[in-house]
Amino acid sequence: MVMKPSPKMLLKIEDLSVYYDKHQALKNIKLSVRANGITALMGPSGCGKSTFLRAINRMHELYDSIRLEGSIRLESHDIDLLASNTPVEWVRTHIGMVFQKPNPFPKTIFENVAYGLKIQGVTNKTELEDKVQKALESAGLWKEAKDRLQKNAFTLSGGQQQRLCIARALAPQPEVLLMDEPTSALDPVSTQVIEELIMSLCEEMSIVLVTHNMHQARRVSNDVAFLYLGELLENGTTEEVFANPKHETTRSYLLGSIG
């Protein structure tokens, strides 16, 4: 790990449950996420990692059959993200998201990065250009993209597309960045680039990273949370959990005998 994470907590998740119709996919999760740190959610497929992540920026609201309970407090604003009087647009401009498969819009590179700003009403051209450049720089894509900002995003390689998606999420300057297995569709070289990028980004925001690759969790994260069949079995600093897992299932997972 590169830097010492701050001890301050930014997200406080209390009693979070998620239901798909009758099926309970997450059971009373309680977890705090540090400001300026990387929290990795790990666990075998179907354990509820993505469900958990998508609860934080309320993506589940797009689908009728999913129901949420509990609260997720964003401490910097002292606001409950899940409260019905918190506008979902506000939540999503403060909490950015990067998806598993690179999903740039079929538009130009510039338009992709500028989109989040545009829907917030930024129209000033120089401001847009500045912020787009800054976001692309933070995502480590500026050098490669600066001469082709008006090209379609699909002319980029897979790894570049994922960094573009990261830049797109960074442009509105979110306080939390949610990443849903951002490297699972990428080759090892692109994966390494993105992992280094993630570690540099946590200086300015807190990152929640879903991964089913425990080696990745070990490489990049400060804290880990281990989910199993919808329950949070164990969480703590990465060092602690990897060196001395308290729960038997966690130990088996880390040894590779389950998962």
Binding site: N57, M59, L62, E89, W90, R92, T93, G96, M97, F99, K101, N103, P104, F105, P106, Y115, G116, I119, Q120, C165, R168, A169, P172
Partner: peptide, 15 residues
């Protein structure tokens, strides 16, 4: 139109 493009827009705060 793929869901992942729609979700990308929603995730940036689009109505």
């Amino acid at each position: 139109v793929p869901d992942n493009l729609k979700e990308a827009a929603y995730a940036l705060g689009a109505s």
